[in-house]
Structures are given as C-alpha cells and as structure tokens.
Design a protein around this nucleic acid. Structure first.
Length: 512
DNA sequence: ATACATACC
DNA sequence: CACTGGTATGTAT
C-alpha cells in the first residue's frame, strides 16, 4: 500500500504538474495555519457562545428534518470498465482501465488492487501495473447502456434524476405505498422498499448485464453514502429514524459526504474532525471558523438532515455552457488564436443546439506550469455567434499572451444565459417582446447595439468595439457599422497530440 | 461583476 | 515524456 504512494510519487516528482500541485498544497497548508492561529485566539466563553448559536441552527434543522421519503441512489459499478468487460470477454480477468495514456476515467476491480484509479493518468497506471490494459472511451456504448438503466429506473419513479451516465436518484415512496396497498404478506414498508430496490437492481442486471449498487435512506445525501457501503453489486438500507441516522453518521468519515472534498476535509482534520459525529461535537469551532454556507452544510452532514428532493427542480436551468481543450504547450499566438476561433465556433454550435445565448463570455487558459486563469467580459446583449464570442475573448488572449508563458489549455464559456428567440428554456423578456414588435433579422453588435450590414462586418466591428476603438469614432448610433472583414479561421495546426480528447468522467470510485 | 478555488462525475 | 472536460457553486475582492 505504501508502495503505491511511492510509485505515484516517483512517477510525478519534478514534473510541472507535481510542482504546481505542491505549490497549491502549500497554500492550503498556509490557510490552515492561519485558521489554527485564529482558533487559538478564541476564549472558552467565545466557543460556548458559538456552540449555543449553533444549537439554534441544529434545532432548526431538526425541526425541518424529513424522514417520510424513501430516496434511492443507484450507482453502476465501475461503469465504463464494466461495459467494456461485458463486451470483450478477454478483458474480464485482467486489470484494465478505460481512458487514455494521459487520463483514466475508471478502472476495473482487478486494476484497483494495484492502486489504479479513476482520475489517474494512464502512464502512472502502467507504472503501478505493467500488465494494465487501457481501453479508449466509447461513449455511444455507455450512453446506450445508461438508457437501459434509465428505462428500469423510470418504472420505479418516473421523476428519477440522473447525475451522470452511471448514477441517479429516485424517490420510491409512492411506489412503496402502492405496493403496500396490494398483498405484501407481512412485509413492512422498509422491507418492501428494500425488496423493490433489489428487484430494480436485478432488472438492471438482466437488461444490461451490468451490476449496480444502491443506497436507500430518507434523503439523497444519506442514500448516496449508503450506495457506497456495499459496493459492488450490493445495497444498503438506512432506517429512516433519527437515532439510526445519527448512529450511522457518528463514525462516518467526513470525506464520504458529497460536497466535503479534499480541501475542506484537510481543514477539518486540522481541527481534529474526521468523522461526521465530530462535526457536532466541534460545532463551536465550525461556527467561528467557516462561512455561514459551510456551517449549514456541515451541520447537515453531522445530523443527516438534508432535504429529501432528488434534484428534479422545475425552475432550475443551465447556468453555463463551455468548451475547452488541452494541447502540447505553445506560446505561438497565431496558433492559439486560431484554436480560440475553433473553440468559439464549437461553443456557438453548442449554444445554438441548446437554444441559449450568453451575456457573459469567459476565456479560460492554463499555462504550461498549470496555473489557471480566466478573463470575463459581459456584453450588452446575450449572444450565441462565434464572431461575438471570439471578439469578446481574443483581446484577453492577446493580453495574457504578452506575458510570454506557453499555454497548455484554452477554453471559452458562456454564462448569464438566456433562451434564444423562439426556444424553450430559461426566459428573459426581451425589449421587442415587451413592446410587442417583431424583431427584424439584423446584425446587431452585442456590445454597443449598433447594426451591421453583414455578419462579416459585424464580426469585425464587435472586436473593435470591445477593444474600445469603435467608441469615439465616426459610427453613429443605430447606423450600420463598417469595417474590414476578418478572414475565417482555418483549422488550427496545433498538435492536440498527447491529450487526444477524452470526454471523461470519473466513474464509481471516489476515495480509496 | 470578476477572478479564483473547490467539488462533483 | 506524460496529469481531462463540463458544470455548479463558494470565497474573496
């Protein structure tokens, strides 16, 4: 076990990735040191008072604790790897992972014995396990398998919600009640719920030849933790009673709670909080050291008191759309600029396909030393055109490039989204709607609102507009904008080499 | 509002 | 040699 850590350490030591990770960790350590200093300055009275204040919060959470629902979290076991093993018997008994040399999405259980994990680069996986077989992602297959899983889930709760291809939540309370109305012998509600989930998993297995694990509890937060308890091919039921919930959580590592990640769990560990029960014991410190938002989620984690919804929020809408790509680091501005054009084109297509426009456009970049930066621009009007996206990001790229450091990633994001004209989805009444007048098909500058005669003219104008060159010039408000045309971006010659393009997700595994 | 950080899969 | 991509949200300014 200690070997695994050593091999990983050796494989990455001295690399830019490793150095960056180390620097980030030093920042975290520093933040923790400051936190502990602050902690040492608290008087016992301060802490007692903070505890009392926290008791008010926990009382409120207890008040609203809802134990009336049966929430189920279904999680497919080593999903992508399982699909590949199902379809290729020769992979069944060998350590294998799905992904690429630069990144693994998931590994099978044979590979996990060697320490090969999701989110690990393939080349390190091979160091840990030289026999490791790495299979490229085949999302069509995973989507098809996921569809079958969803067919089954829909029969138990038509309002189920998926988190990703391999994981989703159901509320089977109504289904259990219906079942209880029939002849269930002397089965209790709890037993019926567990039987139904067992049947659901069996159906999933019959239909897909893939195994699923499941958790059954009063809310999603708990159900998710439970689905991990008897993995793979198992399920775990947590009785919907306050004492059972508190007992279950008391010794549970905080890291198991969704939302408590690497950094927060380090901070908590520094306060000698590693189990959920300790979150309650040290509630005074939680109160004094964390933001209100974090206090709330930590008390929820300690009590297991989370709202029971399964995320089927009617008025929740997508907040952002983005696309990004990693490549062999370069500082060549012509190449990067062309790549940016392609990304804007891609994002434009994605936005149109989803019937959305964004008012805020953000350029994301990562330097060769893994430092991530972002530069945002908010436009006067939301857009989905590649030209406007490019105009909003290109100047920022130019500015960042002047620093001289090569880049290894570029990305473009649209946020502050609004539904495009005539599309369903999140809406924001437009001026033309409010005045009841139909919009003429015009080429309007998203920055200043002026009209261009053609798309090409618009593209050129918008860029200058954003650069601030068009403002004081001869253009008149409302009039057509002129300007030189920018040649369309041909395919960029940037090597996308070592990092092909894996639309990866992490599957199944989380912490070891 | 912007930038950066954290978290999830 | 080599460490992803997409979305949401929290924290800080």
């Amino acid at each position: 076990m200690i070997q695994i850590f050593q091999i990983i350490e050796e494989a990455s030591r001295g690399s830019k990735f490793y150095n960056h990770k180390k620097q980030r960790q030093e920042k975290i350590d520093e933040r923790i040191r400051r936190m502990l200093e602050l902690k040492d300055s608290f008087t016992p009275e301060q802490i007692t008072r903070a505890e009392a204040q926290m008791d008010a919060l926990t009382a409120q959470l207890e008040q609203s604790r809802d134990l009336s629902r049966f929430i189920v979290h279904v999680d497919m076991d080593a999903f992508y790897a399982a699909v590949e093993m199902r379809d290729r018997p020769e992979l069944r008994d060998v350590p294998m992972a799905v992904g690429s040399n630069s990144m693994l999405s998931t590994s099978n259980y044979a590979a996990r014995k060697f320490g090969v994990r999701a989110a690990m680069p393939g080349f390190i996986g091979r160091k840990l396990c030289p026999q490791l077989v790495i299979v490229p992602c085949d999302f069509e297959k995973y989507r098809a398998a996921s569809q079958l899983v969803q067919q089954v889930m829909a029969r138990y709760d038509p309002d189920f919600s998926m988190v990703s291809l391999d994981e989703g939540y159901l509320d089977i309370t109504d289904r259990v009640a219906t079942e209880m109305d029939g002849d269930t012998g002397d089965q209790t509600e709890d037993e019926v719920a567990q039987r139904l989930v067992g049947e659901m998993r069996a159906e999933i297995c019959r239909l897909t030849r893939l195994t699923a694990s499941a958790g059954i509890a009063a809310n999603g937060m708990l159900a998710k933790i439970c689905s991990d308890q008897n993995k793979p091919d198992g399920q775990f039921f947590l009785p919907r009673e306050r004492p059972a919930v508190l007992d279950f959580l008391r010794e549970l590592p905080v890291r198991k709670v969704s939302g408590i990640g690497n950094v927060l769990s380090q901070q908590l560990a520094a306060l000698e909080v590693t189990r959920c029960g300790e979150l309650l014991e040290r509630r005074g410190l939680v109160r004094l050291l964390f933001s209100e938002c974090t206090q709330l989620s930590l008390m929820r984690a300690g009590l297991g008191a989370d709202p029971p919804g399964v995320g089927r929020d009617e008025d929740s809408h997508q907040k952002s759309v983005s696309t990004e790509t990693t490549f062999a680091a370069t500082a060549d501005s012509a190449q990067l600029s062309e790549l940016l054009g392609e990304l804007c084109q891609q994002l434009s297509e994605d936005l149109r396909r989803k019937g959305l426009r964004g008012r805020t456009v953000t350029l994301k970049l990562k330097t060769s030393s893994f430092v991530v930066r972002s530069r945002a621009t908010t436009l006067a009007e939301p857009t989905s055109t590649a030209a406007a996206l490019l105009a909003a990001t290109r100047p920022a790229l130019a500015r960042e490039l002047s620093a001289g450091e090569p880049l290894r990633l570029l990305g473009v994001r649209a946020s502050a989204l609004v539904a495009a004209e005539g599309a369903a989805g999140p809406r924001q009444a437009t001026l033309t709607e409010m005045t009841g007048r139909a919009a003429a098909p015009r080429h309007e500058c998203p920055v200043c609102g002026r009209t261009a005669g053609s798309l090409a003219e618009l593209s050129a104008h918008v860029e200058r507009c954003l650069d601030g060159e068009a403002g004081g010039g001869g253009e008149q408000n409302g009039g057509p904008v002129g300007g030189q045309k920018r040649p369309p971006a041909p395919h960029s010659g940037l090597p996308r080499t070592k990092h092909k393009r894996i639309d990866s997700f992490f599957t199944a595994v989380k912490r070891s």
